[in-house]
Design a protein around this nucleic acid. Structure first.
Lengths: 231, 231
DNA sequence: CGGGTAATTGACTCTCTTCAATATGCGTGG
DNA sequence: CCACGCATATTGAAGAGAGTCAATTACCCG
């Protein structure tokens, strides 16, 4: 979204309000009142369900057992950024503040399980957090320094890891708008570059949502100059 | 850096090796190999010194006591992204893998101290990691969804938090190139937008490095539509 | 087989980048 | 103390990648 330098203005990505006070105000998160939350029982969630919303009180971490989840931040003016796509083994729900700063939405039917409770080692929580940070760093590189074609290629590869059983084909549960909000592009640019990747024979897309990796080596090569990352 | 869709190619920001075994690598190890790590002794570092490089074995977390540190990722083709700017209280040095995936460079003379050792609570490590994740989320929003002017404004405000004693003026230890690599822009765009902010009377810049917040409310307003973040 | 939503494609625009001069600051030495 | 020279920053002009606007097409579903 291009916006005039004159017009506008969005605001507080700077300092974390760090509100010590967890207002009681927030809408009770779905999970809040959920009996599952306090137990170690896996919790089934349906595709597109919102697991928690920005502003909901944070109430513990969850690990994705099956399916996929996305974390979505939204600015007051509607600009959206998908911060992360989580698959089996990935953890979410932790916050440095009493309330969540983003939405968590199930991308597919999925199963989550409380994480970080009694029997879980603190080291596991740290490990999960570190994996998250590493993903965020890679995504920052993508957002700040990759071209649109590279972003889309990297996005497809990442999705194949999270969503594909065989590492080749998968049903993409993200709309083109979601992909755009994840990759820092607009919907049309995502579409054009998906088409470009298809024309090159690198991927296949059928019925909008059915993705297939056709030439992984080619995709890797496309991302090579940026490379495995790091000097 | 614009690159032709044809020419192409950077690569592996996709999947985190996700070494299921964060075995010896990550958490516990840190404090082990480094002589300093085993102690609680603060360690003085000079401005521009590289604290660790990508590829170096990760050897424990450190907390910044005084000064500032930046974390820098570099792609094989030279594209750079500054992942984070750390100030007093912020923690770095943790990795989900046995080796670091980015450089850590002192922005100013600074003092760091081992973090996460015996007497430190695991909860402290988790808290530090969560604060980092929250910063990364905000930065992802900046990189993916803010305009150049907004990014520069947000960057200046963030720097004032980290570097300024009075919250108003500070000497910016980042070159224009550093700022560009942090905000996902090119050097000229940073320069132009700093000039734009000056013309609006929002900030002052003297001798290239001396920054001053002239109208914080104005800067906040500039960032308002994006706002305090989140719906 | 229509009707509605989502995706694709085309034409054009614009922000940001690129390329190319200046200009400013700072260190050095005459 | 000032002239020179280098490194970094600023500014201008032009280009390009990605965005915007607007149809058109593809898919889903009743």
């Amino acid at each position: 979204m291009y916006r005039s330098n004159e017009a506008l203005s969005p605001a507080a990505l700077i300092a974390p309000p760090l509100a010590g006070a967890l207002a009681a105000a927030a809408i009770p998160a779905p999970v809040r009142s959920d009996p599952f939350a306090a137990t170690t029982a896996p919790r089934p969630i349906r595709a597109r369900d919102t697991i928690h919303r920005s502003g909901d009180p944070a109430c513990g971490a969850f690990v994705v057992r099956r399916g996929a989840v996305m974390l979505v931040g939204t600015l007051p003016d509607g600009r959206r950024q998908i911060y992360d796509i989580l698959g089996p083994g990935d953890v979410f729900g932790l916050s440095d503040r009493p309330v969540h700063g983003h939405d968590a939405v199930a991308l597919t039917d999925c199963v989550t399980e409380p994480f970080g409770s009694a029997q879980t080692q603190a080291a596991d929580v740290v490990a999960a957090a570190l994996a998250t940070i590493a993903r965020q760093h890679r995504h920052a590189m993508l957002l700040g320094r990759l071209t649109a074609l590279e972003r889309v290629a990297a996005g497809v590869l990442r999705l194949s890891e999270v969503l594909s059983a065989d590492g080749v084909g998968f049903d993409c549960p993200l709309s083109r708008q979601d992909l755009a909000d994840w990759l820092g592009l607009v919907i049309e640019t995502v579409s054009r570059n998906l088409t470009a990747l298809q024309r090159r024979g690198l991927i296949g897309v059928a019925r909008f949502t059915r993705f297939e990796i056709r030439d992984r080596a080619g995709l890797d090569r496309l991302l090579e100059p940026g490379g495995a990352a790091h000097a």
